[in-house]
Write a protein that binds this DNA or RNA. Structure first.
Lengths: 170, 170
DNA sequence: AGTTTAAGTCAGTGTTGTTGACATTCCAAG
DNA sequence: CTTGGAATGTCAACAACACTGACTTAAACT
């Protein structure tokens, strides 16, 4: 079962033969790539005294302006307290604006301020730059495969959030 | 620059047209997929009172038995103390064995004990299972592209570690 | 009026990361 | 041979960020 050769690859049959070794390589690739993926944003965030949690909030508020706290909690998959700590500092620092809901006054709708958009844009650009470079290096076919595998790797409820965020095209 | 349509996609020319929107989708896919990627191991680790740092140590010691602390530090990209805290509990709990170096007595060589191999194997299997399922769902071509993009996304020094860990084939 | 929902808060805890100081060992220059 | 520097690993104290659980406020629903 852990001899790295047989194991769970028996039921694969005709279509796809996957040794434990190949799977392990994929797992390690995921680990190292994710570090690269977060490296550039981390550098910028550090200069401002922020962490990844702040980036995630900025990103998804930018992506879904006017979203409420509950929705953001679902997307980020953290607790209220975790999100709130981050959100409070972002609001205090004037990067995020919280507006009381019109229809439902219990809700707070979140928006990036101009300052918030600047920082989010700066971080997004370096992250896009790396993604762009990786895509170009790997080529068109690879990009499609990359996305397919990633989507298949998500938990179903996460996939729901992912799809809900979809822009029109893609 | 942040209108999601133009921006840094100008120098793409013939080969690959990438809108900011497509890149953003890739970034979000990476975020959600990584959460799925770590979900199963996290569940097992939690039962034992361990975290991801413990898993990473177990994984790479299993991958490179007899490695010393310094090498592990390079692979994991954390500070000595971070690794050491984790390593100490794993040694105390009898999952990892630390042997003083023969040639250089400053070095400690790390090995999994039988107990350590059992836990590492259990975690590795659930992680492989998800990767296997994702690979099968996405298909052979996709797997190749997935790996290509991930490798291109790594920092060069991380790629070095990644390749150094390579098994014979693959 | 009573219940539920959305958001925010306070207190306590755990994991994981950091820096700084320290012990041991090796090695090479005087 | 000894002394001093470099490398390896350990320990202590601290910061960031996640978690649970209990509670408050306000608004909405029934």
């Amino acid at each position: 079962m852990a001899d790295g050769k047989s194991g769970g690859t028996k039921s694969g049959e005709a279509l796809l033969f996957l040794t434990d070794e190949q799977l392990r390589k994929g797992i390690e690739a995921m680990f190292f790539a994710y570090r690269g993926f977060t490296a550039d944003p981390d550098r910028i965030l550090e200069k401002h005294g922020y962490g990844r949690a702040h980036h995630r909030a900025l990103h998804f508020i930018s992506r879904a302006p006017g979203t409420n706290v509950n929705n953001l909690l679902g997307i980020l998959g953290v607790t209220k307290q975790s999100l709130n700590r981050v959100l409070r500092t972002l609001i205090e620092d004037g990067l995020v604006e919280s507006r009381v809901g019109v229809q439902d006054k219990r809700e707070r709708h979140l928006y990036l301020t101009e300052t918030g958009k600047v920082l989010e844009g700066e971080i997004a650009e370096v992250q896009r730059a790396r993604m762009r470079a990786a895509y170009r290096e790997a080529g068109h076919e690879a990009v499609s495969g990359f996305r397919q595998v990633l989507e298949a790797m998500m938990d179903p409820d996460q996939t729901a959030f992912f799809n809900a965020l979809s822009g029109k095209e893609d």
